[in-house]
Structure formats: C-alpha cells, structure tokens
Amino acid sequence: MIYQLAGYMGRKSLSVMGELSHGAMLINETIYWLFLGPFKKKGMRWRSGIHQMVLIGFEAIPIVALISLSVGIIMALQAAYQLRRVGALIYVADLVGISITRELGPLLTAIILAGRSGSAFAAEIGSMKVTEEVDALVAMGLNPVKFLVAPKMLAIMLMLPSLVLISDFVGIAGGFLVAVGGLHLNFERYFTQTVHALMLNDILTGLTKGLVFSMIIGFVGCHEGFSVEGGAEGVGLRTTRSVVTGIFLIILADCFFTVLFYLFV
C-alpha cells in the first residue's frame, strides 16, 4: 500500500517535471523565433501570422462584444441595486468603468480566447502530430516552433490586447445603456462621470494583464498540442486540457497581477 502510494507520487511528479521541462523548452524556443526571427531572412512567417490574426482577433469580435455588452449591463444593474440605497446612483459610472477596464475586460476576453483559440492551437498541432505532419516538417528541415508556434504567438499577443480595448469600450457602453435607459441618469453627467473616474493606468493595467493572458493561452495551447500522443482520443484529451489549464492559469495570473497593481500602481 505504502509502496503503491510512493510509486504513484513518484510517477506523478516525474510526469509533472517532464511537462514543465517541455514547456520551458517550448517557451525558450518560441521567444527565440518570436523576437529574433523577424530580423533573420525568412525567420518569421508573416503571412501565416496575419492569417492567424484574422482567425484569433477579427473573427472573435462579435462574441467578445456581445459578452462584454451583457456583462456591462449586468454590472450596471448590480451596482445600481446597491448604490440606490445610499442615493449614490451616479457612481454606477465609476464602478462599471473601473471594473471593466481593470478586471473584467481582460479576463472575459482571455477566457473567450482560451476557449476559441487555445483549444484550436492544441487541436491543430495535436492532429498534425498524429498524422506525422510535424515529423514531416522536421524532416524537411523546418522548425515546427518557427513554423507553427511563432505566428500563432505573434497573432494572439497582438490580438488579445486589441480585443480587450473593444471589450472595454463595449462593456462601458452596456453600462451606459442601463444608466440612461433604465436608471434615468443624465447622459452627459454619466459620460463626464465615467471620464473622470477612469485613469490611463486603469486601461494600461488591463492591457498588461491581457498581454500576459495571451502568452498563457498561446503557450498552454501549443504545449498541449505537441504533447498529444496516440490518436484522436489524445487530441481530444489535450484540447480539453488546454482550455482547463489555460483558464486556471489565467485566473491565477489575474489574482497575482491584481494584488500587484493594487499595491504598486
């Protein structure tokens, strides 16, 4: 019994260590191709990067906007429910503006992209691994990290912060709708209140979070893709894991950065 327990723990820690070392190698190589690749001849596949940007960024605009709008409305209503009692209804503007830009905009966008793009990375690379396509790339002398990972990372690192900006804007607009339509606040007063409440730092910290989340999604998705073993079942397993691990790490990182920004920014 005790042997089995020790054996189980040993095997588990070995596999976790193995994943960590693979992940570290992937990060190392990706950083090389992402930052030094563009200065080399044929070091970065721009065309593929732009294609990924359309898939990751442009095509996600409707869903990001819709969810941000709903959350903006929800936030405004919940804030109004509390603030009405103390007669401070106008502070709905502050609350919605700040919580969307500092927190919910980046978080929601990241969770949507973890589900949309992180899983797509894992599934694409994973099925390429199963069908010997990754081996074929290596055999042709093409580095799979340069070929597959770098364009995806470039795209998601640019697109996620851009989507965060859209999410911020639409989220605040959702608050507007509630305030002007439902709470009968004056449009102009609400607008100036929001502008006064928001500081550049609020938006910048949100964008910083977005950039960090984008790296988490990209690395987790690609790492899970390269870890696929076996057939279709392996692809499914790793795709699921890419979403679950991605969201888990995003929330951990969010917690860390929120504490950091609260204390220092």
């Binding site: 069908t131 010997e132 396509e133 074929a136 790339l137 055999a139 002398g141």
Partner: peptide
Amino acid sequence: LYRIRTRQGVLFQSGGLLN
C-alpha cells in the same frame, strides 16, 4: 541537424503532406 535535413528527403508512410 536542420541544415543537414535540407539535403535529404523523407517519404512518410502516409505521405506526411500538410493537410
């Protein structure tokens, strides 16, 4: 290794084409 691989060709069992 990557440099050497440009001077050799491999045909995989299922062709290994990028789908």
